[in-house]
């Protein structure tokens, strides 16, 4: 079937073409990962100069730290609420839009832009938007003084983070889900209408199962993203406060490593977070992915 002209003539050429990417991945992904794994078994001096093998001591130290468990718990809460909202809201919007809007390629392009905005920029903007004195919720404090105080109230700060994260995720997920809905042939809905299914029933029995691949994709991306990319938001909006209420694991790792100079502890938590993310994605593929029907 494959003719020789369709193959690379030189056996080193394909390797040469992949090489730049391989170097980048090795340098900026595998090297740090291996370093983190290495450090998690050693006690490192903060400014270099000597390290000592300690086996699993770092792990037992981290696991015994109640602050680690609190950060983990917050991370889980954030992951579930933020991801769920960042998928459900675009889903509702996409189902509504599927009935009316004809999205031009330009509009689709524009809608994805927020995905390209750096998390730090979004954080700065939302720090202003939710500022208790000049933000959109400031009037609340005129009527009920102290009701909205993200600088003092951990729950308010947490809400601010979730809103900022969900906001930045909506357009991309919206476009993905809408594209999935658009790929469903219109006659399926007509057939269902003749079979007696009303609009809600059609959403449940047809639209949701048929866009399962897209829902799965957005969920997997959201779950992993909500764990890692939230760092920029925390750093710009709350700095982990107030009182550690928004110190999720990623931020704790940064704070421990670069403010507390506990390189080994930070590396150990990094390794644990990484294993958790890999397990999470693996579970999703194992339990959700297998049930998804990619057939059209």
């Amino acid at each position: 079937m494959t003719s020789d002209s369709a193959r690379f003539g030189h056996r080193w050429l394909p390797i040469l073409l992949v090489l730049p990417l391989m170097i980048l991945i090795l340098l900026f992904f595998y090297a740090p990962v291996i370093q983190a794994f290495y450090w998690s078994f050693f006690l490192e001096q903060p400014f270099g100069g000597g390290s000592q093998f300690v086996g699993f001591d770092n792990f037992s130290r981290v696991l015994a730290d109640p602050e680690f468990w609190r950060a983990t718990w917050r991370t889980l809460i954030f992951m579930v609420t933020a991801s769920a909202l960042a998928v459900v809201l675009p889903l509702v919007l996409a189902i509504a839009a599927d009935r009316q809007i004809r999205l031009s390629p330009v509009a689709r392009n524009v809608l994805v832009w927020p995905k390209g905005v750096a998390g730090a920029s979004i954080g700065v903007v939302f720090a202003f938007i939710f500022n208790p004195f000049v933000g959109i919720l400031a009037p609340l404090n005129n009527w009920f003084p102290g009701l909205w105080a993200p600088g003092l109230d951990g729950v308010d700060a947490f809400i601010t983070l979730i809103v900022a994260h969900v906001w930045s995720g909506i357009p991309f997920n919206f476009v993905i889900l809408l594209a999935g809905l658009r790929a469903v042939p219109h006659t399926l809905y007509q057939a269902a209408a003749l079979d007696g299914a009303g609009p809600w029933r059609r959403i449940r029995d047809l639209q949701l199962p048929l866009i399962a691949p897209q829902l799965f994709l957005t969920l997997v991306l959201e779950f992993t993203e909500s764990i890692t990319s939230v760092f920029a938001l925390i750093d710009t909006i709350t700095k982990g406060g107030p009182g550690g209420a928004t110190t999720l694991l990623v931020y704790k790792i940064y704070a421990d490593g670069f403010r507390g100079y506990d390189l080994s502890g930070a590396s150990t938590q990094t390794v644990m977070l990484m294993i958790f993310v890999v397990l999470l994605a693996g579970c999703q593929f194992a339990f959700l992915g297998r049930r998804i029907n990619y057939e059209r």
């Binding site: 042939p185 006659t187 399926l188 007509q190 057939a191 269902a192 209408a193 003749l194 079979d195 007696g196 299914a197 029995d205 047809l206 199962p209 048929l210 399962a212 029907n293 057939e295 059209r296």
Partner: peptide, 19 residues
Amino acid sequence: EPKERGLAMVFQNYALYPH
């Protein structure tokens, strides 16, 4: 509504529910 008319339809591209 279509469902209240007591009729059924066979579509050109079958319109079977793929899942």
